[in-house]
Structures are given as structure tokens and as C-alpha cells.
Design a protein around this nucleic acid. Sequence first.
DNA 1: AAAGATTGAATAATCAATCTTT
DNA 2: AAAGATTGATTATTCAATCTTT
Lengths: 173, 173
Amino acid sequence: MARALPDPDLLQHPFFTTGGLFVEAHAGLQAGMEKQLTTEAGISPQWFDVLMRLARTPGHRLRMTDLAAQTILSASGLTRAVDRLEGVGLVRREACPSDRRGSYAVLTDAGLEAVAAAAPAHLALMTQVLEIFTPAEVETLTALLHRLRDHVNPEAACASDPRLTHPEAEAPA
Amino acid sequence: MARALPDPDLLQHPFFTTGGLFVEAHAGLQAGMEKQLTTEAGISPQWFDVLMRLARTPGHRLRMTDLAAQTILSASGLTRAVDRLEGVGLVRREACPSDRRGSYAVLTDAGLEAVAAAAPAHLALMTQVLEIFTPAEVETLTALLHRLRDHVNPEAACASDPRLTHPEAEAPA
DNA sequence: AAAGATTGAATAATCAATCTTT
DNA sequence: AAAGATTGATTATTCAATCTTT
């Protein structure tokens, strides 16, 4: 009987290489961030991500659903992450007054201090990594990643730019 | 008492944006690969990665340690992944004749067929994604990712280019 | 009935410790 | 004692199901 043998050329296609490099670069970066953030700030990259999103949001609060869309976590994953963050006092939940189904995740003072303490070390790592590129190359990389992100994760693109989901807020006069 | 308030400008540093885009782009790509590979080929991206590495290696075999270095898995993570792959007959273990501590992971015929079946769909996804770029942009992205990977994960760089670890194999005459 | 959020069960990853061979 | 590989314990993640509110 005929076997479905792979075309040897197919397995050597350069797109596989690009994809593999992307995954490997991400794994290396993630490992570096994990090491630096846990040793120097005592928090995981996931926690830093959540705290950072809240810190950059006016009012330091975000609905659970919106926060999940901005992080790489699922709704249930975020619920449990916020459980843990609440347990150590970095975040607290607040009921949403206009919709009793909803819940806000709110950054506490301790949470804000934790981000403030962790951010310089994290920025130092990012700088140490991105220093291998010229400023122009960093810009190029950022622009390419932006287009890639928007294509593979349109929801995140919307979450980071409210005009895409709430155009009326910026309607021209 | 003085609080360690964050410098608002610091949290807006463009390097955080670049890092965030990288993580988000990766998450989106990973989700797409997960969906496509599981529905169309019945295997996870992790399995595909392991099988692909073996398929691209002469003899279709690799020492556990070397395979772990080429994948993004730890030694114990690879042990368990190979356990599962062996359980469904896609990979088998073989003793290393020259070093009785060692063990080879070897692609079975069924494993080779599984890669052959999964590769076209995976390549189609990569193509659909990378088509948002011009060929020149793909080259640029690949080159930047290559430098990034080599910087954040030198071990992977060695694993993918034996000359870096075994220079005598290519010694000039 | 659909949306926001949470929970139960299952899966897969890691570190640290262990065992064997070098 | 160090290297290759595995195992035990722990942790974090997901999907599917559930509960409440709209």
C-alpha cells in the first residue's frame, strides 16, 4: 500500500524556518523575563503583564473581560490569575455599578508599587536585548510585529485602540 | 512615608510596546497553529515541533538532550512529551550503543506519516500569515528574528548549527 | 437567549531530587 | 563528581459546564 511520504523539499520550506525562529526567540525572551522578574521583583511575567495593563489604564481599573482581551489569558485564566493577585493584595475586585453581572479588577496601592518596582528591571532587560539592533531596526521590527499582531489577533488590536470598537468616542466635529 | 510611585513616562516607554507586541503576536500565532494542527492533523503544535525536528534530522533520530535543546522544552518536559508520543506510536526510544546513559528518540513510520500529513496544512497557515508581508519584509523579519533568537537563546543557535559545537567536523583542509 | 464571570476536571509544563553511567 | 535521563510534587492553563444578570 502506498505511504504518504513527505516531500523532503516541503519540510525545508523557509516559512517553517521563520516560524521556528519566532517561537524560539519568544521562548528565549520569555525565559529571560521570567528569570529577571522573579528574582528581582518576585512576580511572574504574567502578573507583570496584568499589573502593567491596569497601571497604564486611567483609573487603574478594567472589566475582567476587557482585561482578558488585553492579556494573553482566557476568561477563566484571568479569573484565576486575579484570584491569586487579590490573595497577595496587588489587585482587588470591585462590583460594576451599571451592570451587576460585571466586575472590575482594580490595582491597589501595593499593586502600583509592585509595578513601579518591577518596571525598571524589566525595561533594563528589554533594553539589553533590543540594543543588539539599531534604533531604525527596532522601529522596523516593531512595525512588522504590529502588523503581524493585528492580523493574527484582531481582538487585541481592538482592545488596545478603543477607536476600533467605539468609533463614536472620537467622531469628527 | 514616601511611596515608590512609578514614573508615568517610564511605563510608556516604547520598548514595553515592542515587547508586548511580540508576546501578543506570538500568542495569536500559537492559537492559530493550535487550532489548525489539532483540527486538521490531530496533533498539538508541541508534537508537531518535536516530530518536525526529527523528520529534518538525518536518520530521523536525536539524543534526548539534543532534541530538548532544539525544542522549547526542558529535559523533563521532553521526557514526558516523548512518553506520550511513544504511547501513540509516533516515536520510539532506542538505546545509545556508545553511551549507555543516553537514549535516542526515533521517528517511527507512523510518525513520519503524521508529519507528512500535518506539514501542508501548517505551511498553508504560515503562508496565509506571512502573505501580509512582501517577500523582502519576510526576509527582513526572519533576519531580525534570527539575531534575536541567537542573542536570547544561544543554545538553540548551537543546536541548529553543529559547527558551533563541533567545529572539528568542518575543519578546513 | 446571550453576556459576564466563575468553577470543576483534565492536561501539560516546570523545578528539585534521584538513579545510572561515565 | 558530572552528565543523561527520568520521576514526584507543584503550579498554571484550558475547555466545558454553570450561575447570575441583562
